[in-house]
């Protein structure tokens, strides 16, 4: 017991700081182990990444054919659509690399293997997240970065420091929103036992909003993806700001500024529900 990483620092004076460093070091150690076991299947590793690139290429080609044949989609030209999609894929890659296995939570709960996390002297979340790293996300990084660079040059953009910082903030907010939504849905399984279908419905709704600009849809749908399931904050509203298309959303173009706020609020909510869920699980589990 005494020699697990960071045990000393907990007993030391800077309790909080030691705890954070310890958690991070355990997480990195776990990830390293899972990477090693992944690389055992090298062929699978590369086909997985190429598969994801093909999947994204197909999505983009479909968009490309439509926009090319009809000149534009509700004033969005080809490269603006590529930018919209790539901004999402960039954030999505962070989420899919590190947090994708939230949707496997129900398997742990159903099989009872979740208990192993509760009996060890480290945080449950660290152990759960450290289980796996979804290497396929590397394919998303490649697609997203290529898409952003290409559309930046094709659209003739000329950004300063401010816009680039906003881009990074938007990517991070997008990742956090997606993570928080997936987390919240995963937490459902503490109550219902199953949640993976709900997750796939959310992903479909998400993909739909990320592929097409929200302004082509009807009013109630725009309200839904802005207020209720705020996936429009992942890429749509930030793109309006970054490409100077705020008039597309009527008087609501400023909502893009709210993406980081929405992201943090959702994350806080997810953490709260997670805590309640675990408490519930511990008390009824045995």
């Amino acid at each position: 017991m005494a020699d697990w990483p960071g045990a000393k620092s907990i007993r030391g004076s800077s309790y909080k700081e030691g705890k954070v460093i310890e958690t991070v070091s355990i997480y990195l150690k776990l990830i390293k182990i899972s990477m090693k076991s992944r690389m055992q299947y090298r062929a699978d590793f590369f086909t997985g990444i190429i598969s994801v690139i093909i999947l994204n290429a197909v999505n983009l080609t479909l968009i490309g054919i439509l926009v090319n044949r009809f000149a534009h989609l509700n004033t969005w030209n080809l490269w603006e659509m590529v930018f919209l999609y790539s901004l999402w894929v960039m954030g999505h890659s962070i989420y899919s690399l590190l947090f994708w296995h939230f949707n496997t939570l129900e398997d742990y709960l159903v099989r009872g293997t979740f208990d192993q996390f509760l009996i060890r002297p480290i945080g449950v979340l660290v152990q759960f997240l450290g289980r796996e790293i979804q290497y396929m996300g590397i394919g998303d990084v490649i697609v997203g970065a290529t898409g952003l660079v290409l559309s930046y040059s094709k659209l003739g953009l000329n950004w300063g420091m401010f816009e680039f910082s906003w881009l990074i903030a938007a990517i991070l907010s997008g990742a956090i929103i997606e993570l928080a939504l997936a987390w919240l849905i995963a937490c459902l399984s503490f109550w219902t036992g199953r949640s993976v279908t709900a997750y796939f419905v959310m992903m479909r709704l998400n993909l739909m909003v990320q592929q097409y600009p929200v302004d082509i849809f009807g009013t109630w749908f725009r309200v839904l993806v802005t207020g209720l399931i705020p996936v429009a904050f992942i890429n749509y509203y930030p793109t309006l700001l970054l490409l100077g298309k705020t008039e597309q959303a009527g008087g609501w173009g400023w909502l893009g500024m709210m993406s980081p706020v929405v992201a943090l609020l959702l994350l806080a909510l997810a953490m709260l529900v997670w805590r309640i869920g675990i408490k519930r699980y511990s008390s009824t589990g045995s």
Partner: peptide
């Protein structure tokens, strides 16, 4: 599993499911 991601996408594309 990893191949089927690409397979599914290509089938939908060349089948003209959406476009």
């Amino acid at each position: 599993r990893s191949i089927s991601w690409a397979y599914n996408a290509l089938v939908r594309f060349f089948a003209g499911q959406m476009v």
